[in-house]
Design a protein around this nucleic acid. Structure first.
Lengths: 142, 142
DNA sequence: TATGTAAATGCAAATTATTTGCAATAAGGA
DNA sequence: TCCTTATTGCAAATAATTTGCATTTACATA
């Protein structure tokens, strides 16, 4: 069961792309790999980055995110609110359950759903490249 | 099996909301209800609206869309490209398969998937309010 | 270890999608 | 028909993201 890419994996993704490992990139990657703050948006990352090096700029954050995304090292999600949020790419695909009251994002994974999706696509004459499943819900009262 | 809301349903949604039926709103609703062009974005709607009345403005399109959305008469989707696309609300929930080559949006519906989703949410202690499932794929070569 | 060069950065300004303030217009009940 | 108030169009404001460009920096090579 592969785990999400960590700091070193992300750095390697950049190296493989022939990119230079700069100080801003190191900082951004460290933030992305931090398990504490999941699914940050660009501004979240920028704010945290500035705390480590006040000279970092927002465009650099966007450029780094785009680069990592293009190389499959991180994934970009566009939830209902419009802006994009990011997380390290991960071996097995997972989906999201969004808590409508707290905004918390819970990850889950279901083989059965994955298989059903393949089946449905096949029936429609398609092959799935990727997908996105988001459940929006509320905690059931106990 | 309920069908998507048509022109009259959308107009009624506005009436129920106590809103006035203006010429721009009539035109916008007519475009939304048109089965020919599905999932248009605000600009698509604006361009088509201008052809019927050159004085219509883009803000009016946005205002009308927001109003219809707030009253549940249309649904807003945010696919990968960032901008929002709209369609008349619909009885039975359906999901989308997006053709990655042509951008075509195919609707489908699966009871099984709906049930699996409920089940997964229940296991996580949640009750689903709504969800979004998008498959991105390519036509299988024959 | 010093150094040249292309890649990356920071800044400011541009884009894109969407929203808002406000004076002018028009819907629809009296 | 007339009056009141919602709605409109315009222009300008936001918000998220991207881009142009002169300066800085990583890092391969000497």
């Amino acid at each position: 069961m592969p785990t999400p890419l960590d700091s070193d994996d992300l750095l390697n993704a950049l190296r493989d792309a022939g990119a230079r490992i700069t100080k801003p990139r190191r900082i951004i990657i460290q933030i992305l790999a931090d398990k504490g703050d999941e699914h940050p948006d660009a501004m979240d990352i920028f704010r945290r980055a500035v705390r480590q090096d006040s000279r970092i700029s927002l465009p650099t954050v966007y450029r780094t995110l785009k680069m990592l995304e293009e190389h499959g090292a991180i994934q970009r999600h566009a939830f209902v609110d419009g802006r994009s949020r990011y997380e390290p790419a991960d071996g097995p695909h997972h989906d999201h359950l969004i808590d409508m009251d707290t905004g918390a994002v819970i990850e889950f994974q279901s083989e059965k759903i994955e298989r059903l999706q393949e089946e449905i696509a096949r029936e429609l004459g398609y092959e799935i490249v990727h997908h996105r499943l988001e459940l929006y819900g509320r905690k059931t009262k106990v």
